[in-house]
Amino acid sequence: MTARMDKRFADLKAEGRPALITYFMGGDPDYETSLGIMKALPEAGADVIELGMPFSDPMADGPAIQLAGQRALKAGQTLARTLDLAREFRKQDQDTPIVLMGYYNPIYSMGVETFLDAALEAGIDGLIVVDLPPEMDDELCIPAVAKGINFIRLTTPTTDNNRLPRVLQNSSGFVYYVSMNGITGSALPDLSAIASSVNRIKAHTPLPVCVGFGVKTADHARAIGAAADGVVVGSAIVAQIAGSLTKDGKASPDTISAVSTLVRGLATGVRSARLVVAE
């Protein structure tokens, strides 16, 4: 339901700080561990959870997320199991918005109506589907919005002012500004350019604008959080999971706590973001 997302951003606005949005891959390195990771995220300071749906051909992802998807698929993860993760999580947490992120084919394969009903029932608040630009809105975006699920759009440096209104037209929840052209996990771009881009997008929409691609440390989170309504961290979390695994790629006793430690640090970053501005 969209209310959960709107309430979360409204509360954060009142609190005067940006959101920390954390991405991890559903089923990486296995179902149980990723459920443990998901359950630990809010306590560590995540405000919104992006739950990755693994896909065999992640065309816009760098090596870290590619490998995470491969680990998850190898461990038997499917779209249905990813929805199970959300459903289990919802039993303990009714407040943290969950956004599913991935590619269209597994959804199309399940059937759009079946998928949307299952997603609603599992407590999903939004969708980010990388390979569905606004030109393809009839496929999933419009049916999703009709059922009350946010469709969150990626905007990029190549999305110019002429195109922005089209990109924003059916989007809701928040706007995800991809701060550079490239695949996930690339280097952090120029901060002043990010600030001006966020302002450019804000001139076109009342939605919160969250920034991702390249955020790795609390300092990054603080700096980007000063300019944006939210900071998205993905590859760094996924790399943290990868780094915690045993030699044969299985979860270790430290996997969940390794993620919590990283997210706690990032949360410190976003919580001091606006203080930097005030200085």
Partner: peptide, 20 residues
Amino acid sequence: EDGRFGIYGGRFVAETLMPL
């Protein structure tokens, strides 16, 4: 005009590529 042959074809790409 949307690049469709019946239900096939289309433009299923990341936003970064769409303007191009």
